[in-house]
Simulated assay, not measured.
Amino acid sequence: MNYRLAYAIGFHPWEDAAADPPFVAKAAQMFDREELGRQPPYGRALDLGTGSGIWGIELAKRGWQVTGVDLVEKALRRAHDRVRSASVEMKLVRGDVTALGRAGIGDGFRLILDTGAFHGLQPEEQIAMGQEVTAVSAPDATVLLFVWPRRIRPLIRGAYRSDVEAAFPAWEITDVEPSHFSLPILLEVILRPDEKWYRLRRKLSFELINR
């Protein structure tokens, strides 16, 4: 999907998810799980393809130290406005999710959130993104990956579970859960969503082998 064009013409229906109670409740449940038994600040969080910063801001409100990365300048300008309005601390960086090292974001991220970048990439880009995420994540990190299944549809390419596994060999998929995301009826018919949340954790065995 051409996100630059989408933001240029004001087409960003994914932002409506923030006003979709079932989706918001599910996201909150997943964040709660990562915070269980801990006290804020929870550590570094990375919001990949942050767009206008909606979910990164939510993490910042909860006590995460958030960095949001996106390539689209107009989206980042919207994110800056949202961050100011929310009165939270969130670092916003222009960068490519397939080249995080060049973005200079640092490392040690304990939570990596992707609400729609991965499933729009080509296979080689997905592999690159997985490698970059692994390079900047902490040993005990979690990835929360929002993925639409691959099928013929406009706008969103989608991805299979096998695509996730191929891109993240250093990680284990611990959970695959429905997101409860809903769309206006016309977009439901056109896009045929059946999206899932994938939860991934670093593999200890992989870490030991590759030391």
Score class of each variant (00 low, 15 high):
residue 111 L to K: 01
residue 96 D to L: 09
residue 81 D to L: 07
residue 202 R to G: 06
residue 178 P to V: 10
residue 66 V to P: 00
residue 159 A to C: 08
residue 208 L to D: 11
residue 96 D to N: 11
residue 129 M to W: 02
residue 71 L to Q: 06
residue 106 G to S: 04
residue 5 L to C: 07
residue 133 V to Q: 02
residue 8 A to Y: 08
residue 34 E to S: 03
residue 72 V to E: 12
residue 104 G to A: 08
residue 58 E to A: 10
residue 140 D to Q: 05
residue 155 L to E: 05
residue 140 D to K: 08
residue 138 A to S: 12
residue 83 V to R: 14
residue 122 Q to M: 12
residue 203 K to E: 15
residue 209 I to Q: 11
residue 127 I to N: 04
residue 62 R to S: 10
residue 52 S to T: 14
residue 14 W to T: 05
residue 195 E to W: 00
residue 181 F to S: 00
residue 108 G to C: 07
residue 71 L to A: 06
residue 121 L to E: 02
residue 151 R to S: 15
residue 1 M to L: 09
residue 201 R to I: 13
residue 116 G to N: 04
residue 177 E to D: 14
residue 200 L to I: 10
residue 134 T to M: 05
residue 130 G to P: 02
residue 90 M to S: 08
residue 152 I to P: 00
residue 143 V to K: 00
residue 103 A to V: 13
residue 118 F to K: 03
residue 6 A to C: 15
residue 34 E to F: 00
residue 147 V to P: 00
residue 173 I to G: 01
residue 155 L to W: 10
residue 25 A to N: 13
residue 39 Q to T: 14
residue 164 V to S: 06
residue 78 R to C: 04
residue 27 A to N: 01
residue 49 G to F: 07
residue 65 Q to W: 01
residue 39 Q to F: 10
residue 147 V to F: 11
residue 45 A to K: 02
residue 164 V to W: 03
residue 141 A to D: 06
residue 43 G to W: 05
residue 14 W to M: 02
residue 138 A to E: 05
residue 22 P to F: 13
residue 190 I to R: 01
residue 170 A to Y: 03
residue 98 T to E: 06
residue 198 Y to G: 05
residue 4 R to K: 13
residue 207 E to A: 14
residue 120 G to C: 14
residue 120 G to D: 08
residue 87 S to T: 12
residue 100 L to V: 12
residue 117 A to C: 10
residue 100 L to H: 03
residue 182 S to P: 03
residue 5 L to I: 10
residue 185 I to Y: 00
residue 210 N to I: 08
residue 15 E to Y: 07
residue 40 P to N: 09
residue 172 E to M: 04
residue 21 P to W: 08
residue 85 S to K: 14
residue 171 W to A: 07
residue 203 K to R: 15
residue 37 G to F: 14
residue 48 L to C: 08
residue 202 R to L: 11
residue 205 S to R: 11
residue 24 V to R: 09
residue 159 A to H: 10
residue 24 V to N: 02
residue 150 R to Q: 14
residue 119 H to F: 06
residue 186 L to M: 11
residue 24 V to L: 15
residue 36 L to R: 15
residue 149 P to R: 05
residue 180 H to N: 15
residue 206 F to C: 11
residue 146 F to S: 03
residue 73 E to A: 15
residue 134 T to N: 13
residue 112 I to C: 05
residue 126 Q to S: 03
residue 31 F to L: 09
residue 175 D to Q: 09
residue 44 R to F: 15
residue 80 H to Y: 08
residue 67 T to K: 05
